[in-house]
Design a protein around this nucleic acid. Structure first.
Lengths: 203, 203
DNA sequence: GTCTATAAAGCGATAGAC
DNA sequence: GTCTATCGCTTTATAGAC
């Protein structure tokens, strides 16, 4: 189910706005930024390009709304999952849970997350600029996860944590460019990512 | 020096064509696909948008030429470097060299490589389709590197090599989105990537 | 071969009917 | 609130002068 789709008992206009947002997230996730027209989004939403302007000021506003919901959704999901772990869980368990949740969200559960992942590197610099604080906040969360693990002695002391964080998120984010449902489960992919990140690939 | 810039003793038209190609690679690498106009490229090349059409049929042809030079250039550089290693070098050495070379090329040495990395996920599906065989060939090369390492007993037998390959290339490719010259050297980043991939991050 | 002018097309955005 | 018609800008692409 799409994240914006809780439409019970709301004004008609609000419901339509969310329908357009959902449609935009799906189309952007599928075709990327440059190859998506307002008419594509309208068609996916069962309306017309001109009608979108009753709900959104511009194409940019629509894109930015999708990006914002994407990054905040993943952030919330990851934090919720990590905080729900039994107290005293190892940092390895915490990091593995974060990787799994981020991956599941980005790959199958949320078109906003997928769209955000694909689009963030594609949109013009001014749009990216207005989104950067949200990405930084999420990055900060990961930095704390990694710092916690290091303080607890669960990861090596000789690593640059910024590079490590970008390395992990790079590998995780790149999956949206190649993952096709069916062949491998998300859990399998997440498990291999987690084990190779912690234990390496050397025999 | 840009890869297409060997202009000694060639026809004027050929030289201009290469000047436009270099300019296109730099602008695409900097601004991405959606945010780059032919007029931007023309300006970078010291000419005019209309003049580009004497050398290229269309914007698409220009983009595709940049993408092709990008991926083939990295492929050649990596293969050359790996093959230049002393015979009997360990597979770890070979993989580390491949990571280093790919990274150096993508981050600083070649705007075509940078552009290819950034643009491949951004261009419309039909363009990507026409490039996919080149990417597959490069992916095949990595697959063989990893298979060789596994056969030699240098990496674990329980890993899905496709996921591993995409994980490594994902982490490496993502660097073009965050790397800024100055703070850390390419060698430092490559070294940390290689050591964490092989040995993991666990203390 | 390169420049200037302009045509042609696509698409975001607006206006007004309903 | 939504639809249809259309405007106007942007950008690719072409034509023709030099």
């Amino acid at each position: 189910m799409a994240r914006a789709a809780a439409r019970q008992g709301m004004r008609k206009s609000e419901a339509t706005r969310l329908r357009i947002l959902d449609a935009a997230a799906r189309v952007f996730a599928r075709r990327g930024y440059a190859d998506t027209r307002l008419s594509d989004i309208a068609e996916e939403a069962g309306t017309f390009a001109g009608s979108i302007y009753y709900h959104f000021e511009s194409r940019e506003e629509l894109v930015e709304a999708v990006l914002t919901l994407g990054v905040t959704g993943v952030f919330e999901a990851v934090r919720t999952r990590v905080e729900a772990l039994p107290p005293g869980s190892s940092h390895r368990t915490r990091l593995t849970a974060a990787i799994e949740t981020h991956l599941a969200f980005a790959l199958t559960q949320d078109p906003f997350a997928t769209a955000n992942q694909r689009l963030f590197a594609q949109v013009p610099a001014d749009i990216r600029q207005r989104q950067i604080h949200l990405h930084r906040a999420y990055g900060e969360y990961w930095r704390k996860l990694l710092e916690g693990a290091r303080r607890a002695g669960e990861i090596r002391r000789d690593l640059d944590l910024s590079v490590l964080r970008l390395q992990i998120l790079g590998a995780v984010n790149w999956t949206v460019e190649w993952y096709k449902p069916g062949k491998r489960s998300i859990e399998q992919i997440a498990a291999q990512l987690a084990t190779t990140i912690f234990d390496g690939i050397a025999a």
